Amino acid sequence: MHMIIRWFGPRWSLQVIHGNEVLYIVKQNSVIRLASLVSNLFLEYGNPRSPWRLRLNFNRSNSGFDLQQHHYINEEWNFSEDLKQMLKSIDSNYGQIRGADPVALDAKTKKQIPLFSYRSAEDFISPRSANRVTLSSVLSGIFGDDE
């Protein structure tokens, strides 16, 4: 199984898109884990501010769709029937696939970025960490009010 993943890469990705340009990619075999990463943001703030979009992409066929607030129910970890049907139409095994921790990448440089801030004591005390891009910092910047 691990050899297949190495050959084909993760099944799903969450693409952070500005306009028509993919800026960040989060890779994961479990689409449930990917969609859950952003559920609280959609529930608390609604849809991303335009021109930002979050797209779930099934990497095997390069098919997917933009996530929207209506895909989430006001209970943590619960997806709308619409979202479940969309996932099933793309990947009939979507609910049975497990995955390790997601990996976030800068789409241009292909360099890995941390999911969250302060992953180690060094990050906490380093002055460089204040300007470090993390998936969390990117996502917090595309939801909510313009500032």
Rank of each mutant, 00 (worst) to 15 (best):
H2P: 03
H2Y: 05
I5E: 10
I5P: 01
P10H: 12
S13N: 08
H18V: 00
H18G: 09
G19S: 07
N20Y: 04
Y24M: 00
K27F: 04
N29R: 06
I32G: 01
L34R: 14
A35L: 02
S36K: 04
L37S: 11
V38I: 10
L41Y: 03
L41T: 03
F42P: 14
L43E: 03
L43C: 00
R49L: 04
R49N: 05
L54D: 06
R55Y: 00
N57W: 14
F58A: 03
N62A: 09
N62I: 09
S63L: 05
G64H: 06
G64F: 08
L67W: 13
H70V: 00
H71L: 00
Y72A: 00
N74Y: 13
E75T: 14
W77D: 12
F79D: 01
Q85C: 06
S89R: 07
I90Y: 13
I90C: 10
N93Q: 14
Q96N: 15
Q96P: 03
I97K: 07
G99F: 06
D101I: 02
K108W: 00
T109I: 08
T109K: 09
K110M: 02
K111D: 13
I113E: 10
L115C: 01
L115G: 07
I125H: 11
P127S: 07
S129Q: 13
R132G: 01
R132A: 09
V133H: 06
V133S: 08
V138Y: 15
L139T: 03
I142V: 09
G144R: 12
